[in-house]
């Protein structure tokens, strides 16, 4: 019996990767990377989750059980990094749109310039 959250992670990663492989629009490519990133965040969070436990922020905890703090720290870091990556990618997308007048990869790709 596989846990539902891990199944969700696998499905989301597949969705993200198929977006990356099959979609030519660069906004959709950015979205694909976002989906993969979010699914990995979900994976990290669900690794540290303990049922019925509290957030690991109390000094005098009301219950003995706490969720693991490290995966949450990792997730937070990944969210921040992800923000930077997304911002940079979207700004590059704006520049590409200004330069080529289209967002579809097929129309502006730089083909290998072999002689």
């Amino acid at each position: 019996m596989i846990d539902i959250q891990f199944l969700t992670v696998v499905i989301l990663i597949s969705v993200g990767i198929s977006t990356l492989v099959f979609k030519k629009n660069i906004i959709k490519i950015v979205m694909g990377i976002e989906i993969i990133s979010s699914s990995i965040n979900l994976f990290l969070i669900s690794l540290g989750y303990r049922e019925g436990s509290v957030a690991p922020i109390f000094t005098n905890a009301p219950s003995v059980k706490m969720v693991l703090p490290t995966p949450q720290a990792l997730t937070l870091t990944n969210i921040v990094i992800d923000l930077a990556i997304t911002a940079l990618m979207l700004s590059l997308a704006v520049l590409i749109y200004n330069y080529y007048g289209t967002l579809s990869m097929k129309k502006w790709r730089l083909v290998e310039r072999c002689s």
């Binding site: 990767i17 990356l20 492989v21 490519i29 990869m105 097929k106 790709r109 083909v111 290998e112 072999c114």
Partner: peptide, 21 residues
Amino acid sequence: YYTCIRRFHTGMVNDYVYYFI
């Protein structure tokens, strides 16, 4: 050989991800 190898170098980022997978 060159026509064969150039078919791989499409310059599309989708293909790069595809090879990775």
